[in-house]
Design a protein around this nucleic acid. Structure first.
Lengths: 247, 247
DNA sequence: TTGAAAGCGCTACCAG
DNA sequence: CTGGTAGCGCTTTCAA
């Protein structure tokens, strides 16, 4: 492995000068700089980021913890994050925390040990599993941002959708169109949907519309496309049928 | 950031001893060791892998270069690799080289700079873009394994499917079933399929069956499901129709 | 069983 | 403009 020292010898200067030259510092004589850079290229020198990271106390890498990758939502997220990270001149350390986030804690530990400059932690149905770790990390220097479903946001930095508000907006929209007989398909399989339905229903209630249970179809009856089709059929055949369906 | 030295002070020993104790070395007095480990846990010490990597000249991480992640094949690959890497106690540094592998070279450079212990390079339709880099890497200490389509394997370590042989096997199978009128759907959009068709056709030829061009449907006519359906319809209506379709 | 010391390759300070 | 030197935090000899 070729080092700064090797180049220094070849160029007849000190390794400090080489370091400066390769960082394109204006403190180096232009001729010397050119010569050094030339030698560096010819010899195929590649800086040792490990040493640099140790010295500068920064790794220019961010850690991404994501449950899995078979759910197509995650690859999309990874793609976006990876592009952004590269564009900013950072690196990505990827850890899969497992479908049930069973490795979440060890992923975080490993990333901290590698002194990544920041952690992006994507949670899933189980919420934030390694809560204590994240807490102690935020007390340290490492910034952590959570994405996904988090039960209690506490003092964490977090990016998530406001599902309840979304549901509420939907309800307002339908109400403004004059709908009063509104069916609901889908029972909460996980938090986000629960919140959406909850927001939807409470807005309905707030204007005095009571939830009609015969119009509320639990999710278990509407998992497959086919079942959804027949569920819709059933709703339409009701006397009177709903004028709108929230699904 | 808490270091070995901090723990050493607290325990009243030297940092060398702490290092040994945390590595569970038998050279350390059992009582001291227990005490040190206790302090380490209480203080929340986490080893600095950057420093360790510099000293040991090994990073326990492998670099994965993959074109993109929207093609569902790649997430599957990532999942598998990530699991294996973790199971072996390694870390994963992920780089997306871009749909057309436009970043392949810089990905490899970055991984080398980080002194990863090995690189897994997945190529796509463009083949191996950063050929020179890989060559010089294999001359260095960093092992590189290529996956995907590679035009010339040269001296690289490579894992790939034998598409031509696969096509040939398919042909033999159909022949053994007595088929002689065999249609082919799909023109090569990329190398693998080209090879498969080629292997298929040469096996056909080798037993004296000439390729019937009216039975060979170019891919451009069969990209969408719908078009494939009508293509099949067309083939079946031929006088005489093929008895088998290779698609 | 322990500590002192060297050194991984780099950056950055301080003199000159 | 340049070199010497210190030191990032760790592992690993070498002596004691």
């Amino acid at each position: 492995m070729i080092t700064l020292e090797d180049i220094a010898k070849q160029a007849g200067v000190s390794h400090s000068t080489v370091s400066r030259a390769l960082a394109n510092s204006p403190l180096v004589n232009a001729t010397t700089k050119a010569k050094i850079q030339q030698i560096a290229i010819e010899s195929g020198y590649q800086v040792n980021q490990v040493a640099r990271n140790l010295k500068t106390r920064s790794t220019k890498t961010i850690g991404l913890v994501i449950p899995e990758v078979s759910n197509p939502y995650y690859p999309k997220l990874i793609q976006f994050i990876a592009d952004e990270v590269r564009a900013s001149g950072f690196n990505l350390q990827l850890h899969l925390s497992g479908v049930h986030q069973e490795f979440e804690a060890s992923c975080i530990a490993s990333l901290y040990e590698h002194r990544v400059d920041g952690i992006l932690l994507v949670t899933a149905e189980n919420g934030l599993v390694a809560k204590e770790q994240v807490k102690s990390l935020s007390n340290s220097q490492t910034p952590v941002v959570l994405m996904g479903w988090i039960e209690e946001a506490e003092h964490f930095d977090i990016v998530t959708g406001n599902d309840a508000h979304g549901g509420s907006l939907l309800a307002s929209h339908l109400l403004s169109l004059g709908h009063r007989q509104i069916a609901i398909i889908g029972k909460p399989p996980h938090r986000g949907i629960f919140d959406r339905i909850h927001g939807f229903q409470s807005t309905l209630k707030s204007v005095g519309i009571s939830i009609q249970h015969n119009l509320t179809i639990p999710n278990s009856l509407a998992e497959e496309d086919q079942e959804i089709a027949s569920t819709v059929q059933f709703l339409i055949n009701l006397p009177p049928p709903p004028t709108a369906i929230f699904a």
